[in-house]
């Protein structure tokens, strides 16, 4: 039971990361390998706000979201659009964006190393026990989980009820057809990419309240988010949320039964299972 609850608490934050990546990969069709660095940048911002200015991480969201949004918009506009234009085929674009975002991830790690150094950073926020079903859990974890659930809900609502959300869903299923029904594909992609980056940064803030991070850990979270998105089925938000829970619980299981240092192994194990048995995602149908 404790494992399940802990897994759920972790999974909710992972769902947030996966949503960020889904927006970037599912809608904007950019396989962003620098996604994890965005997350670490958000976490850094929260860390800085808390330790230097005593600002609660949840207020930090207020300035991190617009900043991350603008930053990602600039990245999309000036670094990725040229690649989209240059690409002769979808495959070419995939290779180019993978390489470009891989380069960006290193550049971002470099910038963060320069600004903050290579040490682990952590701060203590709401580190007091909170009781659920008679067992104590970190209050910071519970609050981060609730905040993540709230943000996921907000996104879910936006994507399934608003016009922009509908345009994004159209883009996910077929970009060519979307442009035929007067959806401004480049702008919508830019919007999805920027929004995705902002969501990832917020995910970083949530994680920073209870995890110890360092400048070069981004790649681990990129991996986890990617695995969740693939497990859930690319572009499938409900699938991603369930996959995030599965990963959260699997990681907590491995951490409590074997070793906390093996969480990535848990993610890989799930990944291999998905690749071997259901590469189209948990709820996906086989694409022909």
């Amino acid at each position: 039971m404790e494992v399940l609850t802990n897994g759920f608490l972790l999974g909710a934050t992972y769902a947030l990361l996966a949503m960020g990546l889904t927006l970037q990969y599912g809608v904007a069709r950019i396989m962003n390998l620098a996604n994890g660095e965005m997350l670490v940048a958000g976490a850094f911002a929260a860390f800085w706000a808390f330790t230097a200015n005593q600002i609660s991480p949840f207020y930090a969201v207020l300035f991190v979201v617009p900043l991350a949004f603008i930053f990602n918009w600039l990245v999309y506009r000036y670094l990725l659009t040229p690649l989209v234009r240059r690409a002769k085929s979808q495959g070419q674009l995939e290779v180019d964006t993978i390489l470009a975002t891989f380069g960006m991830s290193f550049a971002l790690v470099g910038i963060m190393l320069m600004l903050f150094g290579g040490e682990f950073f952590t701060y203590s926020y709401l580190a007091e026990p909170f009781e659920i079903f008679g067992s104590p859990y970190g209050l910071n974890r519970v609050v981060a989980c609730l905040a993540s659930v709230f943000i996921c809900g907000l996104l879910f609502w936006a994507i399934y009820t608003t016009r922009i959300g509908m345009a994004m869903r159209a883009l996910t299923s077929n970009p060519d057809a979307a442009s035929l029904v007067a959806i401004d594909v480049p702008r919508m992609s830019a919007l999805a990419f920027s929004l995705g980056g902002a969501v990832s940064a917020v995910g970083g803030i949530m994680l920073s309240t209870f995890l110890t991070l360092d400048a070069s850990i981004g790649v681990v979270f990129t991996m986890k988010a990617l695995i969740i998105v693939i497990m859930g089925g690319v572009g499938d938000i409900r699938g991603a949320i369930i996959a995030a829970m599965v990963l959260g619980i699997a990681e907590t299981l491995v951490a409590s039964l074997i070793d906390p240092g093996l969480t990535l192994a848990a993610a890989y194990l799930l990944f291999i299972l998905v690749l071997l048995f259901k590469p189209e995602g948990l709820f996906g149908r086989k694409a022909i």
Binding site: M223, I258, L262
Partner: peptide, 30 residues
């Protein structure tokens, strides 16, 4: 595991592979 599928799966798998083996080796050593 990956090369039957599209290139994206392969890239993702290799991206974390070094880190995964590092974790496993560290765990075994510890």
């Amino acid at each position: 595991a990956t090369l039957r599928l599209s290139g994206v799966y392969f890239v993702i798998f290799t991206l974390g592979l070094a880190e995964l083996i590092r974790q496993l080796v560290t765990w075994i050593q510890n």
